[in-house]
């Protein structure tokens, strides 16, 4: 009898433990879903404001100029080194297989299809994303965004729409610029171990490129730009807790934008593969 009572008690205890299930372990998931929901709503607001006047074309041009010009030197240097290193690293393998002459073509395909867009977008996520996150974050904590709100001006239109459009349109241009500089880096690297004339190099490089290399790579750069703009603006726009919050906003703008770039790249690669298979 005693044993039975013990069993009942132990069952009860087990039930009680189930009732007192610790839901706090799901808080991170809840926070993640809240963040996704908030970002989606923010993106929705962006599209609503995009077609609503006044159109802040002056601010858009100013932001485009700032974003484009400020990143040109950094992207230029990185792209040159990227082309140079990629060629130098690939060369021994190509020489081993007696395919040294394919080097310009192989490197150009790698740069145009994958490395150029992704590396450029990651640099932009670091430089532009942190800049936007910190700028809007400091505007939020110093009540400048509230000041726009209470003066009947729509801060979403002036601050967010212009910046997101600027990143969306500037990053593809920066990727083209980066690709061109990388090609030059490749040309220099090829000439370090031999000689190839510039027209022949260009001929070999472009001969390996096809329409389906360039088109998906270009399309995805618009999505990279949009993701960097919208995530950075979202983190900055809703930053809180003073200067500490500004730092966090800038930091998370970079981290989440970088993660988004890889996710978009993964989706883009899968989609372009599917489209390529169906078009063959």
């Amino acid at each position: 009898m005693k044993l039975n009572i013990k069993k009942i008690f132990s069952k009860k205890a087990a039930n009680e433990n189930q009732d007192e299930f610790d839901f706090s372990r799901f808080k991170n998931i809840e926070r993640f879903l809240n963040e996704i929901g908030g970002l989606s709503r923010f993106a929705g607001n962006f599209f609503c404001e995009l077609f609503r006047p006044p159109y802040e074309h002056k601010e858009f041009l100013k932001q485009s100029y700032n974003i484009g010009l400020s990143t040109l030197p950094l992207i230029g240097i990185t792209a040159f080194i990227m082309g140079l290193v990629l060629t130098l690293q690939s060369r021994p393998v190509m020489v081993e297989f007696g395919a040294e002459s394919w080097l310009p073509g192989m490197v150009s395909v790698s740069i145009v299809r994958e490395i150029g867009p992704v590396i450029t977008a990651l640099i932009c996520a670091g430089k532009i994303g942190s800049g936007i996150g910190a700028e809007l974050g400091s505007m939020r904590v110093t009540e400048q965004i509230d000041a726009m709100d209470v003066s009947g001006t729509n801060p979403m239109n002036y601050l967010v729409v212009t910046r997101v459009l600027a990143t969306t349109f500037m990053i593809p241009i920066l990727v083209f610029y980066s690709d061109a500089i990388s090609f030059f880096g490749t040309y220099v690297a090829v000439n370090l171990h031999g000689f190839i004339s510039f027209p022949l190099f260009i001929n070999q490089a472009f001969d390996s490129l096809h329409y389906y290399d360039l088109f998906p790579a270009t399309i995805k750069t618009y999505f990279f730009g949009f993701a960097i703009g919208i995530i950075s603006c979202y983190k900055g726009y809703y930053s809180e807790n003073g200067t500490e919050g500004v730092g966090k906003a800038a930091n998370s703008a970079v981290v989440i934008s970088s993660l988004a770039i890889f996710i978009i790249d993964l989706i883009a690669v899968q989609l372009s593969e599917i489209i390529h298979i169906f078009s063959m």
Partner: peptide, 15 residues
């Protein structure tokens, strides 16, 4: 809001 002005404690001038 165009009829209600608001002066912020920290001024909130667009810097």
């Amino acid at each position: 809001r165009t009829k209600v002005g608001f002066i912020f404690q920290g001024n909130a001038l667009y810097d």
